[in-house]
Design a binder for these strands. Structure first.
Lengths: 211, 211
DNA sequence: CGACTAACGGCACCATGGTCCCGTTAGTCA
DNA sequence: TGACTAACGGGACCATGGTGCCGTTAGTCG
């Protein structure tokens, strides 16, 4: 088998636009493929996903999809890398309880939204069956958590929380119970968001997030 | 198409041993299929699962598997129903913190164990892509939570917690952060279990689980 | 204990997702 | 602005998972 540069996509995670030729078309193809993947995941779900269908939606060749990403998880991992780059701004309400509530509501709305919710379910399912996707998901959350952790630093400075509080753990604690409900397909309403935020706030105040 | 009684498995969730003939062989076949499903999920994972392979492992006919369960998610949902029936006893250490810690360690060990962890990852992935499986998963957790909620009632009676504390929410709060780590493929060690238990305890004491 | 039939099993068949080959398009760089 | 080649696209081909048919096995019940 003669391996051209053409055939090298199989090295672990999906690669970003190739180093040697990052220009227009490659980037356009990637963007179209990722949007199509998003749509397909939302409409038909992970289980019935078909790379040929994605190619059709994206208006690109089926061969291209197989060559560049090779597998469904690799494609999703690349989608996650793309999502991690788009940042959503945090709130700053002036109190820890308010900030965490805003965060909880954001997560709640995302997971409840018809499109976003379906997308996240599919992505989480993919992450559970593929380590590269899991790694990409971790990076995605790293980015989101980094966005929100200043809330906790501010609360420590205001004297709301004990010094040494693990900011990232506090942020994670807000969304964990909401994701747990997502797993079992239970509904997630604003009440649950409020509970999640209140619980994390109480635990943080009690000093439960110091190592 | 002549529909015999033979062909009626497609009504939603997988059925339990048929009402009219619950006896020996049917039950044996089901048990063998569920054990084989467990093994296959652990060894090859959800993505590469093959019903013919499961039939081979179970020593039963491929046709039988397709006829009785129809799809992979239906088979997994039936596996979950089976798992829900096997109860694991709770601990009683005499204090809420101790009981929740015991629960957290149990969850931590389960998710960390090579076989059980892989099995849970596959099951959660299936639940995220199929509502019947999600429903079965919900029932499974209902059973587990019911087993442990007396810890909380006891703590209320001892005066450790305020009256009106939502027992089920407290139990869920212990495992939620551990499952959240599972999603992203992060390691889960006893330290994380201790944090999860301590956090839930602190939040419960602070009255965060009253509606 | 023998007839009845639900449920199982083997096998051939078929649909469809994934691979391969090779010609085409379009960034890149002198 | 033209040669070079990375990357794309079409379509034939192939492997494999899922279905249908029909004979066989073994609980059930009189």
């Amino acid at each position: 088998m003669v391996v051209g540069v053409d055939d090298m996509a199989a090295d672990g995670a999906a690669r970003l636009p190739a180093a040697s030729r990052p220009g227009g078309r490659t980037a356009r193809v990637r963007a179209a493929a990722l949007r199509a993947t998003e749509d397909a995941l939302i409409e038909v779900g992970l289980a019935r996903l078909d790379l040929a269908d994605i190619a059709r939606r994206a208006g690109i060749g089926k061969t291209t999809v197989y060559r560049r990403w090779r597998t469904v998880p690799a494609l999703i991992a690349d989608l996650l890398a793309d999502m991690a780059e788009q940042s959503s701004p945090r709130s700053d309400t002036g109190s820890l309880a308010g900030d965490l509530l805003a965060n909880a509501h954001l997560v709640q709305r995302t997971l409840t939204d018809a499109r976003q919710g379906a997308l996240f379910r599919a992505i989480l399912a993919a992450a559970l069956t593929d380590t590269d996707t899991a790694e990409a998901l971790r990076r995605f959350y790293e980015a989101r958590i980094s966005e929100w952790e200043p809330c906790v630093y501010a609360a420590v400075e205001r004297g709301e929380l004990p010094a040494g509080t693990d900011a990232r753990e506090v942020i994670r604690a807000v969304s964990a119970p909401l994701y747990h409900r997502l797993l079992t397909g239970e509904d997630i309403d604003p009440t649950h968001a409020e509970h999640a935020a209140a619980t994390a706030t109480a635990a943080a105040r009690a000093g439960a997030y110091r190592p």
